[in-house]
Amino acid sequence: MLLEVVRQRKQLISITPLIDVVFILLLFFMLSSTFNRTKQIDITTALPGQQQHQQDSEIKKLFLDADGAVVIEGIRYQSDSSDFIEQLHTYAQSGDQVIVAVSADIRVQRLVKLIDQIRQSGISNLKLAKSVTS
């Protein structure tokens, strides 16, 4: 009886330390990993020479001013307005090239929002020009 008990105690391997390690690893991966993968928006840079190859009627210049309004051919639009969105859809349907220029004071987030809006309207021919100091 005594011998049997001793043999049983020797065979017993505790898995508690293993579970501890696995739990720590699990916590590490749960807290440090992210599923929010980074995306990208593609833009083409506006080279000065390239504009001359296009007809003027096909190039639409958008200027995002310091107040966050978009100026197209002298007319100011609020970027959330239906007029502006309609305008973008018209450019998309006619396959116009859109060149975006921004005020140097505007935040990058605002610029990205505008590019996003232009892309969503279906305009694929989009170029970004250098910022304009006001």
């Binding site: 506006a46 140097a104 987030q109 250098k130």
Partner: peptide, 29 residues
């Protein structure tokens, strides 16, 4: 995202000089 858009100007200038037309901006969902 809170930088002024002019922070992109040096990048746009170089990309223009080298004739690189495709530039991507990394964004979050």
């Amino acid at each position: 995202r809170d930088l002024p858009a002019s922070a992109l100007d040096p990048v746009l200038a170089i990309v223009g000089q080298l004739g690189i037309q495709q530039l991507s901006i990394a964004t979050a969902n």
